[in-house]
Design a protein around this nucleic acid. Structure first.
Lengths: 71, 71
DNA sequence: AGTCAAAGGGCAATATAGTGCACTATTAGG
DNA sequence: CCTAATAGTGCACTATATTGCCCTTTGACT
């Protein structure tokens, strides 16, 4: 799976596990509903700030890890 | 430290540890030098695709983790 | 089938990220 | 100090992300 798709999927799964709808997640995060939809469906190319707003609401954060083991 | 700043710093540190200059990292990644500079200096608000291109070149990837322990 | 809630998507307008160019600033070596 | 390499930045232009509006689709429930 592509990295972008994985992120989108994670967001959707997390939202559902929290039992909230797109409208609420968007509003709480301070992002437009339209943009959240685009992110969750894997279309478009979100800005980092929009992504971080949503992840923050979902209690998630970005960590950078190496692609290679022991590196 | 802000999350965005942390990402910028990680990118710069990684680039230096690989011993390459901005010009080369930008070219290999397929991102403009101008954009890479903005990312490394923490200015601007990169798109996810540009960020991923650079991380990919650096051998890094994004993983989403919970902000809360045991969650 | 009918209804309602939630999600998907087209479109146009606006905001802003991406880029190239030219220049300045900083850093490292001599 | 001088020079060369590397990094930072102002500006203008282009490309595209963001947004709101409105309509369609899907899914769940009765």
């Amino acid at each position: 799976m592509k990295e972008l798709e994985q992120i989108c999927e994670d967001i959707r799964k997390r939202r559902k596990s929290l039992g909230i709808i797109q409208t609420d997640l968007a509003e709480i995060s301070g992002v437009s509903l339209r943009s959240l939809k685009e992110i969750e469906t894997g279309k478009g190319n979100p800005t980092l700030s929009n992504l971080l707003k949503i992840l923050n609401t979902l209690g998630l954060k970005i960590t950078l890890t190496s692609r290679i083991k022991n590196d």
